[in-house]
Simulated assay, not measured.
Amino acid sequence: MISLRHARVRYGPLEALHGVSLTAPGPGLTVLLGRNGSGRTTALRALAGAVPLAGGAVVWDGADVTRMPAFERARRGLCLVPERRAVFGSLTVRENLELTGADHSLYPQLEPLLARRAGTLSGGEQRMVALCRALSAHARVVLVDEPAQGMAPAVAARTYALLSSLDACVVLAEQRLPPALRGRGTFVYELRRGRVVFGGEAAEWAGRARDGGAAPPGG
């Protein structure tokens, strides 16, 4: 389990998170929903230690890790796949995967691309390389920003199936809730302008969205 407790994050004079509290269970799948500027990516980076908190705390399995640097969180089993710059562009696909012993067979589409430099791949292909590394890392916490961005529908469906099968705490940042994740067992937090406005089961969120109801206020 990993949590943000009343977390505040500032970028210069601007506050991106206004006292956000959320908890992602493990093993389990949690989705942070929101438009650009909602704070979902910042919340993900705060969990990873990629941005410092101006207030509040990050708690992992009951321990306060707010002051623990990102590299130490990674050593302890936290894996972050950012939206951009998630691969080493100057290295080949094979070299990217060999760095972590990743299994390219998770995405058969990568087989003919192994000799190419990762920086020459399409956005969706780069996501596959980055996710191969994360899926093979045996991490305790996996944080992924826009996992299926640029992927064909069939590849995206495989991506969500792979992430859902992990025996880990998995947290995804998405603009919209993918249909593949609307079943039972997925927890959703919706963020707007740096605040949590909804927290609950994916089916409940989908029902509210379908009925046109507003998400309840919350923090």
Rank of each mutant, 00 (worst) to 15 (best):
V188K: 03
A157C: 13
L166D: 07
C132W: 06
D167T: 07
T159K: 12
A180E: 12
S136L: 04
L143N: 15
A157I: 10
R158N: 11
E125N: 02
G119F: 01
T120V: 04
L166C: 04
A173M: 09
P178K: 12
R182Y: 01
M151C: 03
P179H: 07
E146K: 00
L166A: 10
S164R: 14
L191A: 12
E190L: 13
V188N: 03
A130N: 04
Q175E: 15
Q126W: 08
V142W: 13
V141C: 06
G185F: 04
P179F: 11
M128A: 05
L131Q: 11
R192S: 15
A154E: 15
L162A: 13
P179L: 07
E174I: 08
R127V: 00
A137F: 09
A157E: 15
L181N: 12
P179E: 07
R140G: 06
P147F: 03
C169A: 15
P147R: 01
L162E: 04
G123M: 05
L121H: 08
R192K: 15
L162G: 05
R184S: 14
L172F: 10
A168D: 14
P179G: 08
A156E: 04
G123F: 03
A134W: 09
D145V: 00
D145W: 02
V171S: 09
V155H: 01
L191P: 06
V144A: 12
T120R: 06
L191Y: 12
C169K: 11
A157Y: 14
L135A: 09
D167F: 00
P153T: 07
L166R: 10
V144E: 13
L162H: 13
A134V: 03
V129D: 02
L181M: 04
Y189R: 08
E125T: 02
G150M: 00
Q175D: 11
L163P: 02
A156T: 08
T159Y: 13
E190S: 12
R133H: 06
R184K: 11
S164T: 08
T186R: 00
A157W: 13
P147L: 01
L121C: 05
A156I: 02
L163S: 10
C132F: 05
V188D: 00
L135K: 11
L162M: 08
A161Y: 11
L131H: 08
V129F: 02
P153V: 10
A118L: 04
A115V: 01
Q126F: 02
M151K: 01
A115M: 00
R116A: 01
S136M: 05
C132A: 15
A152G: 09
G183M: 05
G183I: 08
E125P: 01
A134N: 06
A156W: 02
V129E: 02
M151E: 09
M151D: 07
R133N: 06
A139K: 07
L131C: 05
R140T: 08
P178H: 11
E125H: 03
A152E: 12
V171R: 06
P147A: 03
R158G: 06
